[in-house]
Amino acid sequence: MENIVFLAFIAALCTVDIIAFGQFMICRPIFCAPLIGFFMGDISTGLWIGMIAEMIWINAIPMGVAVPIDASPIGILSTFWVCKYFMNSQEAAMWGLILAIPFAYLYRRIDISGRNFNIKIMHWVEKGIQNEKYGRINLGIIVGVFFFVARAFLFYVFAMVVGGWIYKGIYLQFPEPILIGFKKAWYLLPIAGLGMVIYNLTNVKPPFLRHHNHHHHHRHPRRNWNSPRFFHNRHRNIKILFLSHWDD
């Protein structure tokens, strides 16, 4: 149990990096999954899990007000479960990844309600400024960070314990062919992840370049950037450009 408290705290610190503090990218699975693996005594499984999660969820980052599912719970939880119950088993690591996704959706719900709760703190701070209690600005930030960490911490304690029971209970029931399938997926998912990476890298374009493209559209019809793909993805591109003004 002590171990779970410590690891949940480390995991919460990693997860909070994505929004509340810093954005040093310690929240990315390629970093936090091997970190948890390091504390559990198996970096190597953590690295592979981190690699898969990093590539499949390469575009999962909050842009503007959109909140995608967070890749860090996926990497952290699956590494923790596999190291705790079935050390060094690739099939079990795969099952961990499968089970971690619903938990990542749960965390997303918690995150959204937390950000709604922040509205109340924000109004409290604003009222403080009107009444010349300027200390509330610093206090508001401290409270904000505290709640972010506390939410993530409680989530991880819950997911590590309850998720662990579910994880272990179901895994022992799997028949042989499913385990062979998991083993195949362990080596095939990095390729699928590369597909995701290639799709994303070819589709995210900076707005200043887009402007440039449009300008020369008729004069240089043979240039690469006038490809039908650019035209086909125009809605996506425009969405990225204006995402900061969108409300969903």
Binding site: I121, V125, I137, V143, V145
Partner: peptide
């Protein structure tokens, strides 16, 4: 600025964070 999004909220987003930086 590292704490810019510490009080990110759905109404005015990074406003308190900005205030914290400028204070």
């Amino acid at each position: 600025t590292l704490f810019l999004q510490a009080l990110w909220n759905y109404e005015r987003m990074q406003n308190i964070g900005l205030l914290f930086v400028l204070k």
